[in-house]
Nucleic acid binder design. Structure first.
Length: 432
RNA sequence: GUGGUCUUGGUGUAAUGGUAGCACAAGGGCCUGUGGAGCCCUUAGUGGCGGUUCGAAUCCGCUAGGCCACCCCA
């Protein structure tokens, strides 16, 4: 693959979504929306731009996303804004700003749309990408996590994606994590000389992230490291146990991965990724990720509101669909069975009026107002395999008539203009 | 951020240092009011910059972009 060397082209990592691409998006969005509605998630649409600090405070200053992946811009007025790199902070902000705190709880929100992260593009990764996102605000019950995982798995299932695993872990909360952090840090410091350079840095800023490292030398250290699950406080422990129980009961395939910590700061207790079985080993290209973030809303608003959410990557899902030769093109291809051919200016004007009549009758029509020769119009009708052609010329305009030609039989008849649409409707019905 | 690899009309390709060619697509015509075939015409290309050379799509360097991997993640 290459790109045309035009003067202008889409910026790195962005692209035009063409009709065939959009067929996939449409399918995924409509399915997600159906689920959202059925499960009581209200759709909202936050702005693409947000205050830069929103992400700094919530996503976390030491995360990769904030540290190096955000598109940041300064407005004429001097505000510093960011193109949203994820949805959750926006939704949390919106929750407070729009007084959802007085809605019946839990408040369940669904959203979707483009997100932006400045990264090197590669398989299943773009700088502008799309997610579908489900959030539950106001419940600390473990079933909340299960509900969003369940919904997501069902959506994938309905799309025809199989062999999916939920990678899951608990990373504790403000009670137990600080303690674990201390223990882990002590352990890592002891073995600091064995760690890679990045991890030495992580050790100072965000020691949990060391567990995520895939460097072989770090892996050795990590293997022997104390695991968070052994240090969970009673509350977190019970919570996680319940989550796992639910997963078992629902027969959801999962993999308890004690090293899963995820790149965002705000998570508490449950964290998970939904991933293809075959990508499990390398933990590559998660289809979705999420977890619980009981501390996040406090950072944005004034109250402590427990919450959980999941975000799925639309491009990632499409990638899998394509790998499995699942396509939705057919649904998109609803070609017209009628073409209006015209001759002369009067007929062009008449055609527009006629097209509108077809629109009202909900009959899809093709037309070629920019063509002058009837030969060409018929040629195109033929190539597009359109069965009926309506021909309107000067004469027909004057006589308030029209010619209806059956392209398969070659027969044609003159029909009064006002009866035309009705007549075609009848014919189409018969043909079904 | 690091590394690999690729880039010729709209698409698919040919030309291995010496005339940038072919096929398809697109537009038009033969045939101003009747299609499917055929024939003809037109549009349109070596990503960009520089170097080597009498001469560069071809060799070299840089750059941009695509794809991929690492990192990280959706």
């Amino acid at each position: 693959m290459k790109k045309p060397r035009l003067k202008f082209q889409a910026p790195t990592g962005t692209r035009d979504l063409l009709p065939e691409d959009l067929a996939y998006y449409k399918k995924i969005y409509s399915l997600a929306e159906e689920y959202a509605q059925f499960y009581g998630f209200k759709r909202i649409e936050p702005p693409i731009l947000e205050d830069y600090e929103l992400f700094l405070k919530s996503t976390g200053a030491t995360t990769d996303i904030v540290e190096k992946q955000m598109y940041i811009l300064k407005t004429k007025g001097g505000e510093i804004l960011a193109l949203r790199p994820e949805f959750t902070p926006s939704l949390a902000r919106s929750y407070f700003e729009n007084g959802m705190i007085s809605w019946p709880h839990p408040v369940k929100l669904y959203t979707r749309g483009p997100l932006f992260r400045y990264e090197k593009p590669q398989a299943g990764r773009y700088r502008q990408f799309h997610q579908i996102n489900f959030e539950i605000f106001g419940s600390k019950k473990p079933i909340a996590e299960i509900e969003i995982i369940w919904i997501f798995l069902k959506i994938l299932e309905k799309l025809g994606i199989k062999k999916i695993v939920v990678e899951i872990n608990s990373i504790g909360d403000s009670q137990c994590r600080p303690y674990y952090k201390k223990i882990l840090t002590r352990y890592l410091k002891h073995n600091q000389h064995l760690l890679c350079a990045t991890c030495k840095r992580r050790l100072k800023k965000n020691p949990l992230r060391v567990l995520d490292c895939k460097e072989i030398k770090c892996q050795k250290v990590i293997k022997e490291a104390p695991q968070i699950i052994d240090y969970l406080c009673e509350e977190c422990h019970d919570h996680f146990e319940k989550v796992l129980e639910y997963l078992e009961a629902l027969q959801i395939p999962y993999n308890l991965n004690p090293y899963l910590v995820r790149g965002l700061d705000y998570y508490t207790k449950t964290v998970f990724e939904i991933i293809l079985e075959k990508n499990l080993q390398k933990r590559q290209n998660a289809l979705a990720g999420g977890g619980r973030y009981d501390g996040l809303l406090r950072l944005i608003g004034k109250q402590d509101i427990p919450a959980a959410g999941v975000a799925g990557g639309v491009e990632r899902i499409i990638e899998v669909l394509k790998d499995n030769n699942i396509s939705f093109e057919e649904e998109q291809k609803r070609e017209a069975k009628v073409l209006i051919a015209q001759l002369g200016d009067e007929a062009k004007i008449e055609s527009l009026k006629l097209i509108e009549e077809f629109w009202r009758a909900k009959i899809p029509v093709e037309f070629l107002l920019t063509k002058d020769s009837l030969t060409n119009q018929l040629k195109i009708a033929n190539r597009k395999k359109i069965k009926y052609v309506v021909i309107i010329g000067k004469e027909e305009v004057i006589k308030k008539a029209s010619i209806l030609r059956d392209m398969e039989t070659g027969k044609q008849e003159s029909i009064q203009r006002e009866k035309l649409v009705k007549e075609i409707k009848k014919l189409l019905k018969k043909n079904k």
